[in-house]
Design a protein around this nucleic acid. Structure first.
Ligand code: MN
Ligand code: MN
Ligand code: ZN
Ligand code: ZN
Lengths: 143, 143
DNA sequence: TCTCAGATGAAATCGAGTTGCAATGATGGG
DNA sequence: CCCATCATTGCAACTCGATTTCATCTGAGA
């Protein structure tokens, strides 16, 4: 999506209590400019040219994940992918997510699209709605 | 679920054109006795006591998958899991699964516990029920 | 500027998954 | 029942992403 200025990236990091180091700004900048989830290898390919180490990129991805700026998911291909959490994508409550197994895109589903029933044999967590729902399939573009 | 006799397991393998070897019968027997998806490591732990090698167990899991007796899925925890395809167990091969974020255990959910609604804005895949649903939370033991 | 907890780079390690190969054994035909 | 054949096994090695170790460096507050 839109590329933020270095000052904006730095401010966002500091707001989370993270130091604004060169590699960390670069990683956050890459994820901000990306349109979808990115793997560690993809970011490494894009950033090693600037001299950053793959372990540093990895740790920064984990730092951003721990700080809540980024989400880490496995789209089923056995590789972790990192995606910037965007305010536009309304992280409201724990609404369900749709993961396209074709293109890897993640979409927020309307709260009403998934209805949970605490039928016999289901964990009690379903009754309290204290669960996170993931629906995997092919998006309209990949179907 | 129900444990099949060695003869029944052997017959099921032969019907798929697979040789009924000791390790293969044991792997199919484990998956038949299991009530949910099992990882390669879990089957290895259960079967190395009988002297079977982890590579053999792995290749048998792949053989059973290729033969269509077993499904291989990644429920998002970065480990492949194998589950017997049961004629009885809800014809729908895409029944929902519950993943405990505390202990990592995986359980099959009753088909009726999750109801999908193809509301406006949801991918068409939801309408065709051609999706895989994962519910994450804490199991009764970890709550 | 000074200081040091936090961060980096380089290399090692981990672990699930996968494969190569020589020895073994299940199966079908004689 | 025996044998030949080829699928399968046991073992070790290997792949590769993920993760950690540790000595050195640096960002940010004092
Ligand atoms: Mn995975
Ligand atoms: Mn299941
Ligand atoms: Zn898609
Ligand atoms: Zn649990």
């Amino acid at each position: 999506m839109s590329a933020l200025s270095v000052q904006q990236l730095r401010a966002r990091l500091r707001a989370c209590g993270l130091r604004a180091t060169l590699p960390r700004i670069a990683v956050l900048g890459q994820l901000t400019a990306a349109e979808g989830p990115r793997s560690h290898a993809e970011l490494t390919d894009a950033l090693t040219a600037r001299g950053f180490d793959r372990a540093t990129i990895y740790r920064n991805l984990m730092d951003l994940t721990d700080a809540g700026l980024v989400s880490r998911t496995d789209l089923g291909d056995h590789r972790w992918r990192f995606e910037l959490k965007r305010a536009s994508h309304a992280q409201d409550p724990c609404h369900p997510h749709f993961i396209c197994e074709g293109c890897g895109s993640i979409a927020c589903l309307p709260e009403a699209s998934v209805e949970l029933h605490a039928v016999r044999g289901a964990p009690r967590a379903l009754r309290h709605k204290s669960v996170q729902v993931q629906v995997r399939g092919l998006c309209n573009g990949c179907a």
